[in-house]
Structures are given as C-alpha cells and as structure tokens.
Write a protein that binds this DNA or RNA. Structure first.
Lengths: 215, 215
DNA sequence: GGGAAAATACCGCAATGGGGGATTTTAAGG
DNA sequence: CCTTAAAATCCCCCATTGCGGTATTTTCCC
C-alpha cells in the first residue's frame, strides 16, 4: 500500500522536485501539488492524501492557518510542516495547530521521506534542531509543569464519569439518562465537580479537565 | 573526532550489547558503562563523555534524577534518555530535567546511533511516538492558540467595550450601569459577541478574547 | 457497629444563553 | 438627497445553568 502525499509549496522548482522525489520512491505517491492554500480544503478533498507536506512560508494565506483548517476539518489527514526557518514562534504555533511533524528544508530527501513515513504511521517527526527547541521549551516551562498546584482534584469515580459526559457535550438531561440517575443528582455531582476543580462553569471545567488530563 | 558515550543501564546484557554496538561503529566510542547512577557525577567526571545514554528505569536512584544532576552540574554533557515505556509523565519529567533526547529501546541500533549523533551536534532526538506525545501536549494545553479563520472577529467598538467589561467580571447589570445602556441592550450585544467569536458562554468568550488579544 | 465519604435526590432562586422582534442612529454610496 | 446596511438601542419569552440549601441511602474503612 502506497502512502499518498499532497504538497503545498509556492516555489515551482521545489514543488516539482518534491514531486519527483516522492513519485520516484517506492511506497510513496504524490496525489496533488499546489502552489498555495487558498482552496486547501478542496485541494485535500480532491487529492485525498494520507499526509500533507506543507510549506509554512507562502504568499497569501499561510501554512499554519491551513494546517489548522486541515486538522479541524479532516483530522484523519496528517500534516508535516516543512520550512526554511526554525524560529520558536512558528514552531509552537504549528504544533498547536495540530501538525504531526516539523522538519527543515535543509534536511536530506531521505529524512523527509522517513518523516513522511513516521507521520503516516501515526507518530510524529521533528528535525533535531526543532526537537531541541521543543525540549528547551519544556525546561523553561519547568516551573509551571512541575508544580501545577494540585494535579489531584480528588474527583470520585462517579464524578469523573459525569465529567466525561459533560465533555461529550451532554446537558443535564442527557447525562441523567446516560448515567441512569436523576436530573437532580446530576446537578449535585456537577456542583461538587466545580467545587473540587475550583471553577464556575461548564466550559472552564472542561478546559481544566482537558489540560490536566482528568477523565 | 570520535563521539564519546557513557552508558547507564542496569541490565548487563543490554549494557554490553550497547557497548559493542557503539564501539563497533566508526566515529563512536564508549568511554564508560555503568549499572547504576549512584555515583553518576563521579562516573561522568571519570569517563568524560560527550553524550550520556541513560536508561530511565533503574533500581535505586532513577534516571530522571540522574539526568537533572548531570545537566545541572555538567551542562556540556548531553543526555539521551532510553526507555522501554513511553508514558506521558516520564517523558515530560525527563524533558524538564534537561534531557536532549528521548528514544525507545525498540528503536533500531541505527536510529540510536543517529540519535546520539544528533544530540552530540547540539540538536535533539525523539522517537516518532515520543514526538507525537509532545505534539499532543501542545495541542491539549493550548500553549499558544492559533485561529485560522480570522484573527479579526469584526467586533464593533461597542462590542469590544462590552467584552472588556465582561472580562472585568461584571455581570449584565454592572455592564448596563457602566456603559449607560439598558440591561437588555447588554444582552443583545453579548449575544452578538458570542456569535462573532463562535462561542457559547461567558468563560469561553473571555478565554478566546485573552488568547486572541481582543479588547 | 459507628462514622466518613460518596452517591442519590429534591427545592428554590438568580444568572445566563438563545430565540424572536423592534426602533433609532449612523455611515456609506449611488 | 435618498436608499440601504450596519450598528446600537430596547423588550419579551423560555430553557439551561450555577449555586444555596437539605436529606436519605449506600459504601467503605477503622
């Protein structure tokens, strides 16, 4: 089975070079090569790639926004960012936008193919210098990570279940039905959850739960 | 110039295998192999490695603490963590401890050597599945938020004022008084704001406003 | 067996969110 | 000048949510 790749790259020479490399490698196939991301969703829809190789610097709409559009709307498609620069801001924005990897154009074609394969397999890929910046980020953020006040919120099993249902978008009534308890009991549980999480609304609770990895 | 490696690994078989691989590869040399990290600083001092290959699971003192000791006291020495597990907690702790890389024991010797070289050159190395967890961390934590659609939400001047008051913690009544408009008008404005921001509650709106730097 | 914590359940009230409709003011352009 | 669109203003209705109580039963640990 071949890995289908779609390329977004404004430079014609590079675009065609990438296409040639990919199509010339057994196991890879380029199903689309586009010079901009103005119709990125339609392009992805059309070329049905497994992995998108995305240039981050492009005239007009930029690659990070396009990445977010793809991961939001077609989450099964992985995005591998390719760039000439490696400044922190772009890296972190790309990662937050849901990219599965971030490599440099200066990397060898072999490494690029390896990265495409890693990403296709569900992993992630980073050039060493990129990974290093990510590492540094963790070291710097150390304080925040190591002492997040209380990571244990003492939620009971039942409360975690209710919280999980809340995170699925259920309202009180839905939760009551799914948990086989009364509407009022749901309200009670949720009140307790809010107290324990020190929040005051559904959305805050869900945010905190996601950040802390509860439930 | 050869890259000098020190190994910390409690399993004798693995330790010697690693030693053999490293010494059998041109450009690499094993200058020390230790079964525990009880005298890690002395061992590092003695073997003068460029890169330490550190097993994270060891009886007695663990690899993460040892990593922190090394990076704190001998910052020129890089540490590459090697582990059988890839659970989130250990990864992030290791990264925070200053590790330069994190690879799995299931990776091939070739990849390990590549990782050692990447780390030696000042980059960092991660197995794809590790990198993937790091990526997820960024997405989940909303470290930096990227909004593709439009960073400008077309909020009118008045709506931004109302939003600012909301962010100060005012309720409908307070906002009405401070903005010299009626309670109902405040509600109308806020409804419009929610629509434009694509959110459905006060807390989400405030979160988004903060992240996007609106108002 | 007794006590603490959890799970269950109910009531009432205030605040919030979402739907609709409506008027006036302002801005912009033909 | 007039038309039109957007912004700003106001009102009503209703469901959901958050928060304050209270209370009973179940579960679990000492």
């Amino acid at each position: 089975m071949e890995i289908n790749i779609a390329i977004f790259e404004d430079n014609k020479l590079i675009r065609e070079a990438l296409q040639t490399i990919i199509n010339g490698t057994p196991g890879f196939r380029c199903t689309g090569a586009f010079a901009n991301v103005n119709q990125v969703l339609a392009d992805v829809e059309f070329s049905r790639p497994d992995v998108v190789l995305m240039d981050i610097e492009m005239p007009g709409r930029n690659g990070i926004d396009a990445t977010k559009l793809i991961t939001d709307n077609v989450p099964t498609v992985k995005v591998l960012i390719q760039t000439v620069f490696n400044d922190n801001d772009k890296i972190f924005k790309a990662l937050c936008a849901g990219a599965s990897g971030y490599i440099l154009k200066s990397d060898s074609p072999l490494k690029m193919l390896q990265a495409l394969e890693d990403v296709y397999k569900g992993g992630a890929a980073m050039s060493p210098s990129i990974a290093q910046k990510v590492m540094q980020f963790f070291v710097r953020q150390n304080v925040i990570l190591v002492q997040p006040e209380e990571t244990d919120f003492d939620l009971s099993t039942r409360e975690k279940e209710i919280l999980a249902l809340m995170m699925e978008g259920c309202n009180y009534r839905d939760i009551a039905d799914k948990a086989f308890i009364s509407y009022e009991t749901v309200r009670t549980h949720i009140k307790h959850i809010y107290k324990k999480l020190h929040v005051a609304s559904r959305s805050e609770a869900i945010l905190k739960a996601r950040q802390q990895g509860i439930a």
